[in-house]
């Protein structure tokens, strides 16, 4: 599920009746579904909330109704569907914490369509949300969550620079990458042996290093590569 094309292929197979692929796709987008629900409701939504179920159902509906000839990505389409369903739900339930929108659902969608189209920008071939979902999925395998990355992030430019260099060196070494994939653990001691980096520094930023190595190993995450552009290094490898 690394590229938009792959997502579209999966969507096709789902439409052809591959329920396993549907399950996988839903599982993959779960953080996004919750995020959209929270965004629409302007509060944090957990899986025990009714809004989460409605969002999940709306997302499921989006899988079925998404047409790949549309001008928007699947995620932005899913966002529109989830939002419309939630607004309908609020209207029906007449709950307090609904959006302060007096307009009809159709109007909301047209407005959102406009804003999202604007947000996407014409040149963006890939959806950043998909890349972040990808990264999130990958990181989970290595026992890393986004919240804890702040503590592992370098505070100084020099440290960040040397960590980027270490990651660049790492992805070029096949055995190191293999070991990372197999053991799901960063072989820091081997990296230290082959480079001049201090064990202590690498250990301190271990989870951050895993993150940037994973980003570097996925050159198709074009937008995420943009975040790893050092002054003297090009994104990707």
């Amino acid at each position: 599920m690394d590229t938009t094309q792959e997502v579209e292929e999966i969507l096709h197979s789902i439409k052809d009746g591959d329920e396993l692929a549907r399950e996988r796709l839903i599982k993959y987008y779960k953080p996004y579904i919750l995020n959209v629900a929270g965004n629409v409701c302007k509060r944090y939504i957990s899986w025990s909330d009714e809004e989460a179920s409605i969002s999940l159902l709306a997302f499921n509906k989006a899988i079925d109704t998404y047409k790949d000839d549309q001008d928007r990505t699947f995620t932005s389409y899913a966002y529109l569907i989830i939002k419309r369903d939630l607004v309908d739900f609020f209207k029906k339930e007449n709950q307090r914490h609904h959006l302060s929108l007096d307009v009809e659902g159709g109007d909301v969608i047209s407005r959102e369509e406009y804003s999202i189209g604007f947000y996407e920008g014409s040149e963006r071939k890939r959806d950043l949300v998909d890349e972040i979902m990808d990264l999130n999925e990958q990181l989970t395998k290595y026992g890393v969550v986004f919240e804890e990355l702040e503590d592992y992030s370098p505070k100084h430019k020099k440290t960040r620079q040397s960590l980027l260099e270490a990651a660049t060196f790492f992805v070029q070494k096949e055995e190191l990458v293999k070991e990372l994939f197999v053991k799901k653990k960063l072989p820091i001691s081997k990296l230290v042996k082959e480079t001049s980096y201090k064990y202590k520094t690498l250990e301190k930023h271990r989870k951050y290093l895993v993150t940037i190595i994973l980003i570097k190993l996925h050159p198709e995450w074009v937008q995420l590569q943009g975040f790893l552009k050092p002054s003297n290094e090009k994104g990707g490898s």
Binding site: V129, I132, E150
Partner: peptide
Amino acid sequence: TDDEIVLMTKEGTFKNVVRPDNEFPLIG
């Protein structure tokens, strides 16, 4: 999350900031 927003800065580092009650930004 419930109380935090995890941001990836343009330097490629991560920051957790407190989420204001009335804000819930979208991923990306």
